[in-house]
């Protein structure tokens, strides 16, 4: 009992002490970057794709930089909590956001008074497609068959997504527009999205690849197409929408972003560590297992990519009546 008590006392002492020490370390004078632990802020909760992938990357970056890169989850409001936190952090490279397509969706739906360009970006790390899938025993064997069925009964087929305004919703809108299908977009939620397809409530869904790969392997769902740049290595037999003659393309990317005004030298060091970590064995193994594509993109190229993706997001959102900028 006394040992247990000692352990508990020590543990709490450490917890309390670190709560005080951490901010001190973080705000210390910036001599040669990196001079202290780096906060790696993950915009989504523990256990999800963003968390698992982010934690491996942070660990590998820590090996390269020689300082702890500490993953911290700050979930909430579709990523807006993390983005606001990092945007308001000191521009010294000690706080980095594990940003993603959500940096474009949250800023365009009107919940935060800034755009994606309120940050300095380090670069892209990876991307993954968002497959379009139907139930394993559904009558639609191809995307064309689905389009034909939809045209026969417009406004009745239902396509599930993770939530309104999310990347999956936008991809679904883009794909349905491309195949000329008037569908009901069902904001089923991350936890219910797959279930609505299996129960037959939805006729189809758009999900991130990592969220659909298990069901596809078990043949519970059939992936008809991917509104993506190119075929994915995990499901090489699934055609892209473009191959089938439909112009819809939206991928889910993950990247690193820091507060605006971070010195160029710091950003260059982070970018180097990011690329090395992205190509590390641990990270490539994870990519192979979960199906995302590692494709590091340095800042210049990434800025252009972001601009292009943002234009896509805004276009789809405006068409669907979701766009609502609060930017001043």
């Amino acid at each position: 009992m006394t040992t247990l008590k000692t352990i508990l006392t020590n543990a709490t002492a450490i917890a309390v002490a670190s709560a005080f020490v951490f901010p001190v370390l973080l705000s210390g004078p910036a001599k040669a970057f990196p001079d202290g632990p780096i906060e790696f802020v993950i915009p989504f909760g523990a256990g999800g794709g963003a968390d698992i992938e982010g934690r491996v990357l942070a660990k590998e970056m820590s090996k390269v930089l020689g300082v702890p890169v500490v993953p911290i989850n700050k979930p909430g409001a579709g990523g807006a909590v993390t983005y606001t936190y990092v945007k308001n952090s000191k521009p010294n490279g000690n706080t980095i956001a594990w940003s993603s397509t959500s940096i474009l969706t949250t800023t365009n739906i009107g919940n935060v008074p800034y755009g994606y360009d309120a940050f300095d970006h380090i670069g892209r790390v990876e991307y993954q497609p968002m497959p379009f899938a139907v139930k394993g025993d559904a009558p639609y064997k191809t995307l064309k068959a689905f389009a034909a069925a939809c045209k026969k009964a417009p406004g009745t087929l239902k396509v599930a997504n993770s939530s309104a305004g999310s990347a999956t919703h936008l991809a679904a809108i883009a794909l349905m527009d491309a195949i000329g299908c008037k569908a009901i977009h069902l904001p089923a939620g991350v936890t219910r999205r797959n279930a609505t397809v299996l129960s037959g409530e939805s006729n189809a869904m758009i999900a991130p690849l990592t969220g659909a790969v298990n069901l596809a392997k078990a043949k519970k769902i059939r992936v008809l197409a991917m509104p993506s740049e190119k075929r994915n290595a995990v499901m090489p037999n699934v055609p892209t929408a473009k191959e089938l003659g439909f112009d819809a393309e939206l991928d889910l990317f993950r990247s690193l972003s820091v507060a605006k005004g971070t010195p160029i030298g710091v950003k260059a060091k982070l970018a180097g560590a990011m690329t090395a970590a992205a190509n590390s064995k641990a990270f490539t193994d994870l990519a192979e297992k979960n199906g995302f594509t590692i494709a590091p993109m340095q800042v210049g190229q990434f800025e252009a990519y972001l601009k292009q993706e943002n234009a896509k997001v805004v276009k789809i959102m405006k068409a669907a009546g979701l766009y609502q900028s609060k930017m001043k």
Binding site: P75, G76, A77, G78, A80, V81, T84, I109, G110, N111, V112, S163, A164, G165, S166, P187, G189, Q324
Partner: peptide
């Protein structure tokens, strides 16, 4: 309170990003 679970828009948050996360 927080983000509308379906539309993603803010409800009763007084513009505060902390309350936005519910």
């Amino acid at each position: 309170v927080g983000q509308d679970p379906v539309m993603g828009t803010a409800r009763y948050t007084f513009g505060d990003v902390n309350i936005l996360s519910g």
